[in-house]
Structure formats: structure tokens, C-alpha cells
Simulated scan of single mutants.
Amino acid sequence: MATIYEVADKAGVSLSTVSRVLNGKTTVNPALKAKVEEAMLALNYRPNSIARSLATSRSDSVGILVSELNSPFFGDLMQAVELTLRAADKHVIITVGHNNLETEQDAVEFLIGRNCDAIIMHAEAMSDEYLKTLNSSRLPISLVNRQVDGVGEGCIVLDNEKGGYLATQHLISLGHKNIAYISGPSDKCDANQRLAGHKRALKEAGIAFTPNLVFEGSYTEEDGKAGLLELLSGDSPFSALVCANDWMASGAMSCARDLGMNLPQDLSIVGFDDAVFAHHVFPRLTTVSNPISDMAAMSARHILNVVYGYKDEVQTLFQPSLIIRESTMAYEA
């Protein structure tokens, strides 16, 4: 394996010049830099990352903390972050929090212990105060789909309230008045915002909000099935259903078919997220887009700015849009 001494000898430059090239210093003469890079290529030289980390106080590694791994949503998030950072010659270390306070905090300590320069996270259990302290006192963070005062441009969020509004307003425009709702967990900010949007759409249309037409789920497919069964067992009829994510919408659709219902003739259904499977289910799912890949990439750009001196423009608020497919239709009495 080639050494830095061999690179310097082959390039005909000093060790300090090779060191400055490896550490990304801008004061190196371009001609000398080219010689060093040619020598590194010819010798198949790979810099010692530990030594470079000691010299620069940077590991060029960024931690990613997500809630789960078994979801296309988080797969899209991680891929977008990794691709954005890799294009800047940075690498990622991934860990999982499982929406549990102790597990999330252990994951943060794990990433800090691996000398990550920053952490990009989609986490719910840790308090705002903990995250503010982490960002100000230990290392920079960026939050995807969560707003925390004091983290500033590190918070990359979706207008979830507008998304919930668009879903319900679409059904109202089709003539539906009795609209059921399967929400996410009430301890999650995005779930509450989406439900608030649902309520706003009803209020604007002069339709009374009916608590009996709401079922609280936890964003899983099974919650969609259980939610539909419980809503159907109640005494409040409905012709349409909004689900706070596509997994629950998929579960509700599967359950409805098992019950012999025709979709969307017997029940119009709207989801949220536009997951990869939304246009593969039958009928194809009308849903609200959640540009998680774009948001995750923006979080990575924020970290590149804050930690590595980049000057990219950062967009902190993203807008959802309604994607109309075949799971909804005009109300027929």
C-alpha cells in the first residue's frame, strides 16, 4: 500500500504540499495539486481517514437517524441524503430510533461516538429542548419533517396542515359530506397537523366535524384495516375516507375488498405521502404528495453549508400537492 512519502516522491513535491492537497486547502498551486493527484492515482494511494480526521477535526461522516427501516418513506429519505453527501465526498452512518426516547438518545450518542460531523434525523420522541441543546452545544443537526424553534434552517418541513386540507377538500368537491378519517398517532406533530387540515376543510364547507368518524392509528397497514372495521361498526355512515398515510390507506382498501365493497363506488379513499406502491394498488390510490426525497436532500445541503462551508440555497418549507387517481369518485346517493 502506497504511503504519503511515496506520493510526495513521485509528484516531486514536499510532504506538506501533499498534506495540503489531502486536506482540501485552497492555497495549493493548481499545477502542484495536479501533480499530487496524478501521483495518487498512479500509486492507487488512499488517504488514511483517521489521520485526515485528526488533521482537519472532521471525519467527513454524517449520521442519519430514522424512525424505522421497514418503510419506503425512510428508504427514500436515506437514499436522498446519501446521494447528496456522496456527491460532496462525504459518507453516512445510519442508525434507528424506533420512536422510543431512550433508543433515539442512544442512537445520537452512538453517532457522536463515531465522530460524525453532524446528524440528519427524522425523530419524534426526543424533546425540542434536548434537540436545541444538541444542536447548539454538541454538533449541528438537521430535522426532516419537524419544526423546532432554535434550530432555524436546520428544520426542513412539509406543510402537513395544507396536505390534510387538500385530501378532504378533494372529497368535498366530489360531493361527499360524510367523510371518515384515520389519523396518525396523536403524539406526532405531523399527524395533528394533517388532522387539523381535515377539520379546516370541513369547516370551510359548513360540514360539522364528527368525532365518531375519526380513528387514531399509528401509520401501519394494520391500523388501516382496524380503523375501517371500527368506523364501519359505528352508527355514523360515511361515503369517503381520508387516511393520514398511504400504508393505512392500503390497509383500509384491502379490508374493504375483503368485505365485498367495490372501490371507489362504495367508498372513496385518499392517502398521504404518495409512497412508491400508491400507483400499484387497485384501484390506484389518490393521495397527497410528500416530497421526502427533496426534503432529505435539502437537509443534507444544510449540513454541507453549516459544517463544510458550502453556500447552497436552503428551502425550509415544502408544499404538498394532490395526486388524483382512481380510488375516489363523485358521490352518488
Rank of each mutant, 00 (worst) to 15 (best):
M1D: 12
M1Y: 10
I4C: 06
Y5D: 14
Y5L: 11
A8R: 06
A11H: 03
V13I: 13
V13G: 12
S16P: 01
L22D: 07
K25H: 15
P30H: 06
P30V: 10
L32F: 05
K35Q: 14
L41C: 00
S49E: 15
S49P: 03
A55K: 11
T56Q: 05
R58D: 10
G63K: 05
N70I: 09
Q79K: 06
A80Y: 10
K90S: 11
T95R: 05
E102K: 11
T103N: 05
D106T: 12
D117I: 08
A118N: 10
I120R: 08
E124V: 13
E124K: 06
M126T: 08
E129D: 13
Y130W: 14
T133P: 00
S136L: 09
S137L: 09
G152C: 02
G152M: 03
E153R: 06
E161K: 14
K162R: 14
K162V: 14
G164N: 04
I172A: 08
S183H: 02
S183Q: 01
D187E: 08
Q193A: 13
K199W: 04
K199R: 15
R200F: 01
K203V: 02
K203R: 10
K203N: 13
G206S: 06
A208T: 14
T210A: 14
N212C: 07
V214I: 13
T220D: 04
L228R: 05
F238C: 02
L241E: 10
V242K: 01
W247C: 01
M248S: 14
D258E: 15
M261Y: 13
P264R: 01
P264G: 03
D266G: 07
S268I: 09
V270C: 15
F272T: 01
D274R: 00
H280T: 08
F282W: 10
L285N: 04
V288Q: 08
V288Y: 05
P291R: 06
D294C: 06
D294N: 14
A296F: 08
R301I: 03
H302Y: 15
Y308F: 15
K311I: 00
T316I: 13
